[in-house]
């Protein structure tokens, strides 16, 4: 996607989906298409971390929600950093946080409502991916909340994550 068209899409989405005056925090996340013999969709944890690594807000945990007897929870611990920082304190599933896994491609996840009450300060958006019979990767995008102006900080994954673009709107 070219820069111009992504700005156009961003503007269109901002105008279409975010009420006037509301701040925006949404994430464009690329789940890479991998040429492997046995592919499973990654488990993904997305959270807002304070500068001391503590969890300010759990945003999304995408895993095998529909397995019998909550069997899909068995691998939540493999998102080791998320598990350690606060995942292990949660009684999954959590409404508004738990979701089904997403496949290869670019997805846009809007967390504007979830971060609306976040105290002003410095944060990092954390994204951790772990894939069955695959690898694990964590990426962090620092940001300030509330954003003073529109910005699109990004991070590039190396294996289990593709490009991440954080969309911030004042």
């Amino acid at each position: 996607m070219s820069r111009i068209s992504s700005i156009t899409v961003l503007l269109a989405m901002t105008i279409a989906s975010v009420p006037a005056g509301a701040r925006e925090l949404s994430l464009e996340i690329e789940v890479p298409r991998l040429q492997v013999a046995e592919y499973h969709r990654p488990y993904l944890a997305i959270w807002v971390a304070r500068t001391d690594n503590s969890v300010a807000q759990h945003l999304s945990v995408l895993y095998d929600l529909d397995m019998e007897n909550q069997e899909g929870e068995k691998w939540l611990k493999d998102m080791r950093q998320w598990w350690r920082r606060g995942g292990r304190k949660l009684d999954m599933p959590v409404d508004g946080v738990s979701g089904a896994t997403i496949g290869p491609g670019v997805h846009r996840l809007d967390f504007s409502t979830q971060v609306a009450d976040l105290a002003p300060g410095e944060y990092r958006l954390m994204v951790e991916a772990s894939r069955e019979v695959g690898g694990r990767e964590v990426l962090a995008i620092p940001f300030q909340w509330p954003p003073r102006k529109a910005a699109m900080p990004r991070a590039a994954g190396g294996a289990e994550l593709g490009t991440l673009v954080l969309h911030l709107g004042p």
Partner: peptide, 8 residues
Amino acid sequence: TVLSSEDP
């Protein structure tokens, strides 16, 4: 040593 499932 670290488990996340129900009734592991």
